[in-house]
Design a protein around this nucleic acid. Structure first.
Lengths: 219, 219
DNA sequence: GCAGATTATTTGTGATCACATATTGGAGGT
DNA sequence: ACCTCCAATATGTGATCACAAATAATCTGC
């Protein structure tokens, strides 16, 4: 895929990690598809050592699964697992939004509006990967101001697990008309209505779950 | 510490991981204290490779921090970080308890009562490490029946981050009289009162935060 | 033609090494 | 006594290799 990530300064294992991570999030690995250390290493023209570290890190972050025999593979998503991860997001993200609310300013609101606009363009274009990236960018921009690195890291680890599947969800649905909870969130943010903000975020997350149910049914 | 963990079958890097993890959870590493690859490797009579993998895995799980120069060290706990992690537990654990509630039976209740009894003995003895282990064992036994591996893994990753500090908290307080929310949780479990169960779990988690505030003030 | 056994290949694991950088300890000057 | 600079040491990183186990490919017998 994109082995052309800038490599300035960062250690090799980190570089490999980022490439592989992007590939996973972008759906470059089919569920259950294995990634071999030598394959990854030779493809990126590095040795096995940094390749192994990158893979192990992704396994620790649950972006990859480990077979009993020690092979790393893209995890398979089940309805149950997706529901669990969504529940985690439903619980954590509104809390993060509440924490961010006091720190918002005009510039952030403008940025969120811009991101949402960009997002709508992407959903219209049908580019599922871009949509997932844009959606996480929106939430990320908001939670950035929550000043809660530990909580944010937790949420991001959930995103990492759901990401590759979300792409599949949006890919199937294509350009379906769905309510944009982001505008409600922005409105609540401007009105400084914390309860409404939390509700909007929660609804946005839950919508992802509902869309996924469709994807499961079609499968 | 305990380099005498049974090594049957499991790969070396996993063995090293478990030992190091236990050490961290038990407070064997002071906050900010570094762990060197060669030191760990020679201590356990293994090569640098599995030592590095174990360290990297713990870093990925946020049980260790990485300095800008690439050295791994036990993370420092701040009041803010602890509050964040506690909030995550407050949000996730009641949900996990609710999920477990329908699956409880007489045997589980008996086991929980036994674990809580054991726990009280440990808090009386003043062994902080044993208390932390016992407490996680109690919660773990309950959530085991939630049939929610992804959510449980998320909570356990939070435990891993708070664990070493909790020991410090309980160590300072020693045998202070504190309300046992576990009995309330068990009672709610028997009465099949989900709301009360969630409340008890939440209170139990929150109590940890309050105790920690004391520890911070004393520091 | 096909199922089972056997060989060949691939793969993960752990060890060792060279190299560059970071850290530490001490010497010398103010 | 304290700070600065420099050498000695320690440390992380990445590469290469040997080995055993797992997977894939091939062959054999029916």
């Amino acid at each position: 895929m994109d082995a052309s990530t800038p490599r300035a300064g960062i250690p090799t294992h980190d570089w490999v990690y980022r490439i592989l991570r992007r590939r996973i999030m972008g759906g470059g690995l089919a569920p259950g598809e294995a990634v071999t250390l030598r394959g990854l290493a030779s493809e990126l023209s590095v040795s096995m050592t940094p390749a192994r570290e990158a893979v192990r890190r992704l396994v620790a972050e649950r972006a990859l699964e480990m077979t009993p025999t020690g092979r790393a593979a893209a995890p398979r998503m089940t309805r149950e697992r997706f529901a669990e991860l969504t529940e985690a997001r439903e619980l954590l993200e509104p809390a993060l939004a509440r924490r961010a609310a006091p720190h918002i300013n005009r510039a952030l609101v403008a940025r969120l509006k811009e991101l949402d606009l960009h997002l709508n363009a992407q959903v219209a274009s049908g580019d599922a990967v871009a949509y997932v990236e844009g959606n996480t960018a929106f939430h990320s921009a908001l939670y950035e101001h929550a000043d809660a690195p530990a909580l944010t890291a937790l949420v991001e680890s959930v995103w990492l697990q759901t990401g590759p599947f979300m792409r599949l969800v949006y890919g199937r649905l294509g350009t379906k008309r769905l309510t944009d909870h982001h505008v409600a969130a922005i409105k609540a943010l401007e009105a400084k209505d914390d309860a409404e903000l939390a509700k909007a975020i929660r609804a946005d997350v839950r919508q992802g779950l509902e869309l996924a149910q469709h994807a499961f049914d079609e499968a």
